[in-house]
Write a protein that binds this DNA or RNA. Structure first.
Lengths: 184, 184
DNA sequence: GGACACATGTAATACGTTACATGATTTT
DNA sequence: AAAATCATGTAACGTATTACATGTGTCC
């Protein structure tokens, strides 16, 4: 296998933490993550895990629940090695540059009418507020069990700090673009 | 054309601002953007613009410089409409959730040895500092011409706020994961 | 006039998405 | 028993990436 894609690396990391897992569980973990940016559909996960298995990064183990049979996958040693290499060996310049779908739309906001601009910015502020609430809840949840899992708390904290920054920013945009003073 | 991809929308936005432009110029603008997250290679841009043209979102105009002939593209009315719709009509939940390639790697940091963890976090902090410097320079640059183009300044400000937040966070991670006090 | 960047593509490849299909388990 | 959800896939499709190919303008 040439090079792990972002989704493959993420999946491998999930398997590493939750092993042994079924593909379906991996899918669930993707879906349940706060702010999911992958669809993590069946069409992506099952072939992906099959690829990982063919590359001997994960190994399957039969598991049966009643009549159903399925595979539970666990990380192999080479898989672990490969995961370490994936984390450390990425192009660091690409890692720090992140695509903000909101920002890119704000950047081309001038094609919108004044009303549309206001509408868009308000909607974005609203969604960021919702995301903020979700992330805050997640942080307090993770904080409760931080002794067992300090890293999960940190990850949630990261999402929180970013969402806060984006909210501050979108309001800055509102202030400048919609006029500094706007009495309703 | 079914639905604009993220790259297509971005390209259309660039064309909207800089029209009339050649595909090569679009490519340059992508590449020169601070923190580029798309390769914006020839293999993506040329077919992309051809698609946009076939969908009548952009129209070509012959332009000649010496012996060379090429196309300069400009937004059509339907293209402008489509761009507006693309900005406003995206799935707002997906827009606010952004994939942070650093955070996802930090999340699976436990497969690393203590030394590797330190190495990785230090490298990330370093790269974020570099990104911060670049973004700061960009902000001051855009601030100088903010009267002509207030939006560009805001976009740079957005990148700055995010980078700052990520830097604060990575240091939080360092403090927790590498021990609260670490005398060298 | 040779080297190098400019400018425009094409080909092979791979990956993720949506949509579809199917059987098992649980719920009502 | 019907309906809904769980769980595991497959097929078609589109799009971005890397690598390659080719000719033009400019620099020394």
């Amino acid at each position: 296998m040439r090079k792990l894609s972002e989704l493959e690396g993420a999946a491998l990391g999930i398997i590493a933490r939750a092993q042994p897992v079924t593909p379906y569980q991996v899918r669930k973990i993707f879906a349940q993550s706060p702010n999911p940016h992958w669809s993590a559909s069946a069409g992506s996960i099952y072939p992906l895990i099959k690829r990982l298995e063919e590359a001997h990064f994960v190994s399957a183990e039969e598991h049966a629940t009643g009549e159903r049979f399925g595979q539970k996958y666990a990380l192999t040693k080479t898989g672990r090695k490969r995961l370490r290499h994936w984390i450390l060996g990425g192009d660091h310049v690409k890692l720090v540059g992140l695509p903000d779908l909101v920002r890119i739309r704000v950047a081309m906001m001038l094609v919108l009418s004044a009303d549309e601009q206001r509408q868009f910015l308000t909607a974005m502020e609203q969604k960021l507020l919702e995301a903020l609430a979700i992330t805050r809840a997640d942080v307090t949840l993770k904080a409760a069990e931080k002794d067992r899992d300090p890293l999960s708390l940190l990850i949630s904290r990261g999402a929180l700090l970013q969402t806060e920054a984006r909210l501050v920013w979108i309001r800055e945009v509102q202030a400048v673009m919609l006029g500094p003073r706007r009495p309703d």
